[in-house]
Design a binder for these strands. Structure first.
Lengths: 165, 165
DNA sequence: TTGAAACTGAATTTCATTTTCAATATCCGC
DNA sequence: GCGGATATTGAAAATGAAATTCAGTTTCAA
C-alpha cells in the first residue's frame, strides 16, 4: 500500500532508535520478558519505516536484515511494541491489522483512498474532545477511539476520468 | 453482545416492513436477481431487531422462523440489504462484521464497551462536517467515515470494583 | 557456569468469511 | 399454466488472517 511520503531514508535518528530500544527493554524487564536479538532487529526495522505496516509487510522488511526471523516472532513483537506504547494498531477496513509508530507522535487520524490504498494523516483535536464529551454523557470511561475517512484521492479520480469504466 | 435497549417488540411498523420489502424487491429486479421466500424471511427478521447483528446472530434469529435457512443465505442476503441501503455494515473492530438498520435512520456513531460488548449510539454532526472539511483540504472525494469510541461502561466498572482482579 | 524460564519459528489450529457445486426454485415468454 | 434458462440455496470445502502449539534454542540471574 502506498503512502505519499519519501520512505527510503530512515525517518528517525540514531538516538531515537536507542531511546525506543530502551523503552522496549525496560518494558520487557518490567513484565519479566527477555531481551533478544530478534526483538531488537524487528524494532529497528519497524522504526525505519513511516508506513502503516501489516505484520506481513514488516516481516518482509525484517527478513532483509535477518532472513531467519519468522513471521510469528514479528507478529508477537508487534504486540509487544504496542503494549509498551511504541506502536499502535490502526485498522483500515480491509481486514488487515496494521501498526504505526506511536513514539513521540501527536494523535492523528487517517483518510484512506479506497482505490489505491494510499492515505494521508490529519490532526483534529476536536475528535478527542468529542471522545471525552460523549464518554461523560453516557458514563463511559473512554480509552480510545477510531476515526477514519474513506474516499478517492485526486490522482485516482484523474485516472478514472482518463479511462472511465 | 448486549445493547441497552428493549428489543423484544418489533421496532418497526407493518407498513415499514412492507416498504422495506418493496425496496429490496425493486433492487432485486433492477440487478436481475430473484425474489425468494428466504430473502423476505431474512429481511423481516432483520427489521425486527435494533441490535448490531453479526451474520451468526441474525442466522440464529432467522432459524426461529425457518430452520431450513442456512448461514450462507443469511450472509449473502445481508450483503444484498447493504447494497440496497436497508442495512449498513458497522465494524466494532473485534473481528466480527455487524450490520444495523440504515433505513430511515439519521447518521450516528457508536461507543462500545470493551468489557461486555454493549454499545450506545450517539449523534454528532460535527463528525460529518469534519469529513467534508478534511476531504476538501486534501482533495479527496470522500464517501464515508468510521468513528467509534471504546471504553468501559458504568456497569462494568462497578463489577470490576466489586470484584477486582 | 548453570538451569529455570522465556523465546523462537515452523507448523498447526482457529474462526469468520467466502466460494463451490449439485439440487432446487424463480420467473419470463409463450 | 408451462417449459426452461437462469438464479438460488445450503452443505461443505476453501480461504486467509490471527493465534496457538511444541520441540529445540537462548537468555540471564544467581
Amino acid at each position: 500500500m502506498l503512502q505519499k511520503r519519501i520512505d527510503d531514508q530512515p525517518s528517525i535518528s540514531r538516538e531515537m532508535v536507542r531511546e525506543a530500544q530502551d523503552i522496549l527493554h525496560r518494558h520487557l524487564k518490567r513484565v519479566g520478558l527477555k531481551q533478544t536479538a530478534q526483538r531488537d532487529t524487528i524494532l529497528r526495522s519497524f522504526l525505519e519505516t513511516r508506513d502503516h505496516l501489516s505484520t506481513d509487510e514488516l516481516h518482509r522488511l525484517v527478513q532483509k536484515k535477518d532472513p531467519s526471523i519468522g513471521y510469528t516472532t514479528v507478529y508477537r513483537t508487534l504486540k509487544l511494541l504496542a503494549e509498551c506504547g511504541l506502536a499502535s494498531e490502526v485498522a483500515f477496513h480491509d481486514g488487515i491489522a496494521r501498526y504505526e509508530h506511536q513514539y513521540n507522535r501527536r494523535s492523528h487520524h487517517h483518510m484512506v483512498c479506497t482505490e489505491c490504498g494510499g492515505s494521508v494523516e490529519f490532526f483534529s483535536p476536536e475528535v478527542s474532545e468529542l471522545e471525552a464529551e460523549i464518554g461523560r454523557r453516557y458514563h463511559y470511561e473512554t480509552t480510545r477511539h477510531t476515526f477514519q475517512i474513506y474516499g478517492v484521492c485526486e490522482d485516482c479520480r484523474k485516472k478514472n476520468s482518463a479511462r472511465p469504466a
